[in-house]
Amino acid sequence: MDKKVISTVIEQDDEATSEEVKARLRDETQSIIDALTAPAYVAALRAVKAAPVEKRLLEATKRLTPEALRREGVNLPEGMRISSRYFESDLPKPLELGDLPDGRPNPLIKLSVSNPGLLDDLRANNPAALAALLSDSHTNLGNVTELPMVRFGGCHCGGGTLPGIGGTACGGAGYYL
């Protein structure tokens, strides 16, 4: 059993009305917004992005931690987590970026270099086209060595389990590393 999973039960908040749940969620997310918009937090994000590529994770461990940000005066509610994060598409098939098994270059890599943002745009606006694009590719994400293909960043999550819905509010990937 995964040691992180300790419960299979979630309880729906049947007592609260929909408007009460929404009001609680607004309160929880407002504390996230207050933290994310703090000038010291934005400055820390930009400092990490400005570091040499290979050093960015190291910089993040120094600047983008709850302790470091609190030292800079950012008001972070208790329980906040700040972590690297990688998003995949909203498709059932993973985004795959490695070379193809027969040695042919992966067209996704070419597209990521020649048309930055295209894959994200397709993901948002034309998922069927992206699905077709992904249908002939191969996964090898650990060995990707060029920044445009990595596309992961940081994520700030807090608020614990959101009342009435069970999720956690996050401000994500302010800047891809």
Binding site: T37, C157, L162, A169, G172, G174
Partner: peptide, 10 residues
């Protein structure tokens, strides 16, 4: 140039 997205995670 600051934050890119907001999300609710499950």
């Amino acid at each position: 140039t600051a934050w890119e997205n907001l999300n609710i995670t499950f």
